[in-house]
Amino acid sequence: MAIPREAREARRRVGVVPQNDNLDPDFTVTENLLVFGRYFGIPAATIRERIPGLLEFAGLAGRADEKISALSGGMKRRLALARALVNDPELLVLDEPTTGLDPQARHLIWERLKQLVQLGKTVLLTTHFMDEAERLANRLAIMDGGRIVAHGSPREVIAQNIEPQVVEVYGDNVADWARIEAARHALRFEISGETAFCYAVDPRGLLDSLQGRPALRYLHRPANLEDVFLKLTGRELRD
């Protein structure tokens, strides 16, 4: 479709879950869905038919007549998700859908998003949680300062941008150890506070060296997206 010329027609087929709560505080859960559906020109009878299914999907089945102020943060986010589905969109856009949610609420959102993908919908979301991106995405792009700095499937992005093995070492004087041993056995290392992050293809040298240092604790793990993200965008605060 040609945007912006056909923006209105495009929005008919898109659902949006914004980062900021903009549910209608004057309305109940049901009224929020009904009123929002009318903005799409959907007949009231059709919207009313859809509402129970949407509430079921969002885990809000018993809350149809609840006021918005009575909902928790997680429920509001799920209602925003239900609202974005009221027009049965082909594309769903979510802006940081799990920010500020507790783990249970986050898992529920993840599960629902996977269901939507199975139903054949396209889901586009932004997130600062790398585990979320790694878990949900078929394809992802890492952006820095408005530009895409890496893209592909999570596995591809990790394989192409960072050493496969990470050994995180914690403890007093970790820096002294790292400057000698990590420099010798790792392809690359970084010291952040009390932790040394050592990146390697073959971590055996590092692990052997750590055997002789009981004062240092360590974690050996495969590289993940968070490592890639920090490598590509730096460890400094991004205000």
């Binding site: 209105r8 027609e9 929005r11 914004p18 900021n20 903009n22 209608d24 929002f36 903005y39 799409f40």
Partner: peptide, 14 residues
């Protein structure tokens, strides 16, 4: 305050 307009603009409204 409520960002109601913003929500409406996500529908096919101008």
């Amino acid at each position: 305050t409520q960002r109601t307009w913003e929500a409406i603009l996500n529908a096919p409204m101008s």
